[in-house]
């Protein structure tokens, strides 16, 4: 994903170059939004998480370790933010406000046009850990090593978690009668 190019853009951002900032955001806003959407299932929340992800990334730019790829770092923030959002949503639901996850919301119509809700339902049925590895592997095309960097787990754990997640998905698809 153009690690050298990212490094140059980050360096320019550190010098206050807003064009570099815009380039970096443009490079990753779509995959980050997609990853957040697959984790959360609603476009509004995914947009908020995407914005927060970039905000946190740039607030903590000094803590970014260039030894790792920028996208690994930013996906890590995005996945963590998505999980945090899921927890916030869960707490809201426990308080009796059901405006969150299961409520279709105004973006449902848009979502229905743009993707199969069935896919999102299957993803949302997965545990957060399983969903994260599926999203990173399938929708952001991260390698095992990169998923390990993002989630800060050993590559061996990535393999086993990914395998388990796929087994769960397979069982769900069988229940739903999906055939390729």
């Amino acid at each position: 994903m153009g690690n050298d190019r990212d490094a140059a853009l980050i360096e320019d951002c550190r010098k206050g170059d807003r064009q570099a900032l815009a380039s970096l955001v443009r490079r990753y806003e779509r995959p980050v939004f997609n990853a957040a959407y697959r984790m959360l299932g609603t476009a509004d929340e995914a947009a908020d998480v995407t914005q927060t992800t970039f905000l946190k990334a740039f607030e903590n730019l000094d803590r970014y370790n260039p030894q790792y790829k920028f996208f690994s770092w930013i996906y890590r923030i995005a996945v963590n933010e998505s999980i945090n959002q899921l927890h916030r949503r869960k707490r809201t639901e426990e308080l009796g406000d059901n405006q969150g996850a299961t409520e279709a919301g105004p973006d449902a119509a848009v979502a229905a046009e743009m993707l199969s809700e069935e896919i999102q339902e299957v993803l949302l049925d997965l545990s957060e850990d399983h969903r994260a590895v599926i999203v990173l592997r399938h929708f952001t095309e991260c390698s095992y090593r990169e998923i390990g960097e993002v989630l800060q787990i050993p590559e061996k754990t990535v393999k086993s978690r990914l395998f388990s997640a796929r087994q769960v998905m397979r069982e769900q698809l069988e229940r739903r009668g999906f055939t390729p």
Partner: peptide, 13 residues
Amino acid sequence: EAIDAFLDRAPPL
């Protein structure tokens, strides 16, 4: 492959 095909139904947003 079947799982992949299923997920591929979702176009990038």
